[in-house]
Amino acid sequence: MFGYIRPDMGELKTKHVGLYRSVYCGICRCSGKHISRFSRFLLNYDFVFLAVVRLALTGEKYVIKPRRCMVNFKKRGVMEPNEALKFTSAAFGALAYFKALDDLQDEKGFKRFSTRIFLPFFRRMAKKGEKMYPGISDTVKIPLEKLSALEAANCAVPDEAADSFAVLTADIASFGLEGDVSRVAKDMGYHIGRFVYLADALDDRYKDQKTQSYNPLNLAFGGAEGVDQNISFLRRTLLDSGAAISRSYALADGNSFDGIIYNIAGYGIEAAAEKVINKENSK
């Protein structure tokens, strides 16, 4: 995942800023402790949001303590490891490994070389994740294989290509949950994945055109210029995913994370969409 989903800090209440940062620092520490120190350099905002969603939906109790770390010498509130943070770290480990395997097949040059160098670290992360949450590797592996097959077949329906990745995030978000909460988590996870996949495709439209790499949007709209001509439609469909996250969460809201989730589903998603849309100016 690519770090598109983050809050609009300017619109966030002070108490929510502190809470969000505590999750951010908490997941970094937790993954360093339970998965791999290496994973701390790779974590991104999408996984912080997944952790927030899990914390909100499970209603798990959390503890925040002031702590220092290697980049913050001043003590700040950090969420102590809990189930949601451990699970998100494990899911990240599994996804990083299978994504690295995928990159080994698809990428060329330096990226492929560096992936090969770091592959043992990724493998170790996935192994630890699987040990903590049996079944998490398959949750990631199966949809990624389906996605690779669709990409190899040059799937030109963006929603169909996004569906595989969205199923992956949906299954991660709802892993181990039951009942209505699981359905809400699945729907939220689906739209997180859909947004990330489509935003990434939009972000890379010129790069992929130049390198002749697979891009579902370029295929659907006849190249990066065609994508730009249909940009208002794409903006709407990206924001639709934000609206869907908000509507799904409304069915299970009522806790201290409401402000963060509604902020991300609204302002955060909109800001991320605008950022990738306006990339046309710097082609």
Binding site: A243, S246, R247, G266
Partner: peptide
């Protein structure tokens, strides 16, 4: 309604 957010979020 496709683009409508939950009113709780102010969107």
């Amino acid at each position: 309604n496709m683009a409508s957010h939950s009113t709780a979020g102010g969107y």
